[in-house]
Design a protein around this nucleic acid. Structure first.
Lengths: 120, 120
DNA sequence: GCGATAGTGAAGTGCGCACTTGACAGTTGG
DNA sequence: CCAACTGTCAAGTGCGCACTTCACTATCGC
């Protein structure tokens, strides 16, 4: 929905994260990397897609700070970075919290009405 | 990547959740609903998209158990359901945990090697 | 009753994006 | 040194999906 020109620049870490994990293949990739680091070829073999595709997904995961990779010799080793999940956790906490505060506001409102009734 | 026929049936709650929250508009919708319940028209006005689009997004959010809605008279009121975030939280916790265990296994391995060296 | 408002259904459109293929460069081991 | 392997780039393809428009029904306020 956003204009492409707007979307291409300055995407928040939350946007990057949700977009990265919104794809089932990338989620499987993360799950695999959480168990152990892996090369591009290994991931391609496990997930049954081309090495090119793995490279593209890896780019997205790295942009979202969910993975890092280093190339030594001809093999690039990818690893999961759990710290990248933090903004996602923050988003969840924020919305849970906002919900709780909303309930509190309702409680205050209700109890206010009740006490008024008590006075009357 | 998955075959359509496979994808259409039996999607896990995690899949539904990440797909639902993978869209920026639906995330804004959730954020708004976390503050207060809203009607379809109100959401359409706030997010500046058609009421039809809101209805479609609402369907996705309800399928993911992130929102509920009830229609009284001609107005449908939508509300956020924070409990729906649980599987997402579980997913995060699981991957954090798996990472920690991986580190522990590495520690064991390293200390094992070190003690062998000590013996030699 | 009537005009205005709230929502739903069907049908279409455009584009982003996951994925492929094919060609290529760098690395390794026998 | 050559055959096999690892990864990357460029260029395409197909399809899912967010969104729209139009038409229609149901409900509200006056």
């Amino acid at each position: 929905m956003m204009h492409p020109a707007v979307e291409s620049v300055r995407l928040s870490s939350v946007d990057l994260l949700f977009h990265a994990l919104g794809d089932a293949t990338r989620r499987r990739m993360v799950s695999h990397l959480a168990e152990r680091p892996a090369s591009v070829s290994e991931l391609a073999s496990v997930l049954a897609i081309s090495k090119t595709a793995i490279g593209q997904h890896l780019g997205v995961l790295e942009e979202a700070k969910l993975a890092r990779s280093t190339k030594v010799g001809r093999v690039r080793t990818c690893q999961f970075d759990p710290a990248g999940l933090a903004p996602l956790q923050d988003w969840i906490d924020y919305h849970r919290q906002e919900w709780i505060e909303r309930l509190n506001r309702l409680d205050d409102l209700v109890s206010g009405i009740v006490s008024e009734e008590d006075c009357a």
